[in-house]
Amino acid sequence: MRRIISVLVENAPGALSRVVGLFSQRGYNIETLTVAPTEDPTLSRLTLTTIGDDHKIEQITKHLNKLIDVVKLVDLSEGAHIERELMLIKVKASGAQRAEVKRCVDIFRGQIVDVTSTLYTIQITGAADKLDAFVQAVGDAAILEVVRTGVSGISRGEKVLSL
């Protein structure tokens, strides 16, 4: 099962390499990884998605917790949560294709953020599966370049991940 794990780590040199190293060392895979500082400059927030059964996920969270630089973590997929990813994608758009692509962007509530006579650069946000669906809708043949930020997430309701 796919999981979204959100981690508060010390904003210290080497902290990220310890997290990433843990995954390669123990043979866990990382699907996506995002990191950025938080409102508290001493902390970074790291969101990663990974795939594994309950036993594996339990080991992953235990080992992450063991890292001295990890302050707190939560498996967002255990409760209601909001998941977002941003994608920038360049697609061929000339002749009849242009209107077709435009329609597709509207359906997915994306935005065209740059244009040339032959292509569109499109921005889309949403859960990862929505971005996957867009990529499929446009079709491989039309796609020139794709860049995705990886998932970030937050829990719904009152729950917060903080010190």
Binding site: P13, G14, S17, R18, G21, Q25, I68
Partner: peptide, 16 residues
Amino acid sequence: MVGVSRPIVKHSFMVK
């Protein structure tokens, strides 16, 4: 050294 030893230490520090 911090990198080479990373998988085999409980923790490490580089003094700044």
